[in-house]
Design a protein around this nucleic acid. Structure first.
Lengths: 197, 197
DNA sequence: ATGAACATACCAACCAGTATGTATGTACCC
DNA sequence: GGGTACATACATACTGGTTGGTATGTTCAT
């Protein structure tokens, strides 16, 4: 039934927006229902609880966003360090001043939910691992191609790159400053350059 | 009146714990009152609202923790890079497995509250600036003492160090793994080493 | 006619906040 | 030094609003 799928998808997207704005715990189901024009009966028909709705937002919405905006772009041909810097810079140029103080949807959920809900934690961890492995992979390829220092550990470096990327976005989010994001990213680029052969 | 100060302090500390555990929005005033044995009338006598209680937790509790655990230790004599690595390593060794998945109290509040409350944002920003300036200062001193590369910008480097420090703690918090924290910190140490003369 | 896909109305629990009352100092005047 | 005025520091009981969740009913396609 196409209508049912449309209802489900509308709920997922509205839930994503609401959670992104207020966090999961402060996200209001009633607001989601108002925005979509869907009733509570429909919501509890498709998702059995607020928790399961949150899980679905991670598994379907955020996971897809990560693929589209990071995992796929990073796999293009070229010097791995150049590719990463370019992907980060393009993301930085597309960002709006509204988006900057909302931060990274995945990191927001991680910081809020990982200590209090194991299901959230596992799902977020799964995405972080995919993210890290995609960075690790191009670093390893770079080592084999002779463009990345053979002395570094690709897994450890990928972990740190991911961490400082989230750190930069977190700092810029609080400062509400794109300029601060770019200053912070310069530090990351400096680190990335130090991985070149 | 000493009793009044004791009541106020007890409320602040219990509020800090409750906020650290559940975030500000999900923090329950009733739980804080139960834990302290203080009544609601007393709470609203000392702090006029939940918001002002939150502000006081930042200004008094978290600010002091930052001073004690980071700003002061970092100012000891020695090679600035060595000092920073040592301070970070000591903090890492003292951390318990319970603390690791609670994360950094300041970063938790920043990620949750900065987009939705300007008063929180400004107070957190003020602490982050003090933190950054303390790192910037020892880098600048190191440049003058010939132990830190003169080519780097101390303010930008300090910003990135702070960001990646928070990033490492955030990743480790979600992974709930001290090992991952240490792996991540190794990456930061690599960056710090690259700042040496 | 059976189950999926809703719609409506409702519920108990919890929330921050407040109105009102009281006990204990403390300052000041005579 | 004793009485009065006033403020501080609470205590108790309550309110209106919101929350996630549910019970029950209805529509409609197969």
């Amino acid at each position: 039934m196409a209508d049912a799928d449309k209802t489900r998808q509308a709920l997922l997207e509205a839930a994503y927006e609401e959670i992104y704005r207020h966090g999961f715990q402060a996200a209001s189901l009633n607001t989601i229902l108002e925005r979509t024009g869907v009733t509570k009966g429909a919501l509890y028909h498709h998702f059995g609880s607020k928790q399961k709705l949150g899980y679905a937002v991670i598994d379907e919405i955020i996971s897809q966003k990560l693929d589209r905006e990071w995992l796929t772009p990073i796999q293009q041909a070229g010097h791995p360090i150049d590719v990463m810097i370019e992907v980060i810079q393009q993301a930085g140029q597309q960002i709006t001043s509204q988006q900057i103080d909302q931060g990274c949807p995945l990191n927001n959920l991680a910081q809020e939910m990982s200590p209090i809900d194991a299901g959230f934690r596992q799902r977020i961890d799964h995405l972080y691992q995919k993210w890290q492995e995609s960075i690790e992979k191009i670093l390893r390829d770079g080592q084999q191609g002779g463009t990345v220092k053979p002395s570094i550990n690709p897994a450890d470096a990928a972990l740190f790159i991911l961490a400082s990327l989230e750190g930069c976005m977190g700092i810029a989010k609080n400062a509400q400053s794109i300029d601060e994001l770019k200053r912070c990213a310069q530090g990351l680029f400096g680190y990335l350059d130090s991985l070149r052969c």
